[in-house]
Amino acid sequence: MTVLEAKNLSYEYSVGTPFQVTAIKNINLTVEKGEMLAIIGHTGSGKSTLIQHFNALFQPTEGQIFLNGKDINESKESAHAARFKVGLCFQYPEYQLFESTVYKDIAFGPSNMGLSDAEIDARVRRAAAFTGIRDDMLEKSPFDLSGGEKRRVAIAGVMAMEPEVLIMDEPAAGLDPRGRKTILELIKNYRETTGSTVIIVSHSMEDVASVADRIVVLNKGTVALSGSVDEVFSHADELVEMGLNIPQITKIFAELKKSGYDLNTSVYTSEQAKNEILRYLQKGGNA
C-alpha cells in the first residue's frame, strides 16, 4: 500500500528573480507502507528539497504530494496535519535542542498536538526507550550529554510525535563508528517494532546497504535510479559518475568477479563478504 507519493514534483528557488534555480524536476516516486527507503545523491542533488515537501514545509512549484491518497497541500488544515503525520529529523538535529531538560525537549513535539498529559508522558517514555535514553537522563539538561546522546534525544523528539512516516536526514553523520552503529540499530528496531515507514537520506553507501529495503538515487534534481539495494548497487559506474559510489566491500567483489572468480557480488557488509568467500572456498573455488 502506498503511503506517500510525489507526482510530477518540481521546485524552483527564488522564482521571478535573476537567481531562479530549479532544485528538483518532475519527480515521481511512491513510498510503501512499512518500508525503509533510502534516498541518496550528491550534495545539491535535491534530497533536502524533496524531503521538505513530504511534510508540507515546502509547497511544490509544480506537481503534488499525496499522503494516504490525499493531496497534503489541498488546504491549510491538511498541510498542518502533514507536519505531525510525517516526522522530519534534520541533519545534526542536536543543534536544535533548546529545552532545560531532556524530558521537555522530547515532549515539545507531542505537546503541540493537543494530546492529554498522560498520553504525552507515555509517548516521551516510549521514544526514550527506543533511543536508549535512560530514565535518569530525562531530568538532565540536554547540553550536559555527549554528542551521540544529544543526537538520540533529538531523534526521540521526532519519534514521540509517532509519525506514520519518519524521515531522517543523515542520521549518523559526524558520529564515530560505534555511534553510527547504535543509531542505525535503533532506527531498524523502531521500524520493526512500530511498523512505521522510514525514509533515510545518507551519503554513506555502507549505511544505506545495511538498513534499506529500497534505494532512490537523485542526480541533479531528478530520479536517476530506483530499486532494491541489489539493483541500485549493480550500477557501480553510473553511481560513481553521479558523485556516489558502492560500498567498499562490494567493490572488492566486483573486482574479483571481473578477474573471473565466480562470486556473488550482492555483498555489502564484511559479515556477508566472509560468508560468501567461505562458501566459495568450500565448493573448491578456483579462478
Binding site: P247, Q248, S270, K274, I277
Partner: peptide, 18 residues
C-alpha cells in the same frame, strides 16, 4: 576505543579466524 578496522582489514581478519 569505539572504532573499527578498515573494511578490508575487518574481512581479512574474519576470514583468518575461519
Amino acid at each position: 576505543a569505539g572504532l573499527e578496522l578498515p573494511e578490508s582489514a575487518k574481512l581479512a581478519n574474519e576470514l583468518r579466524k575461519n
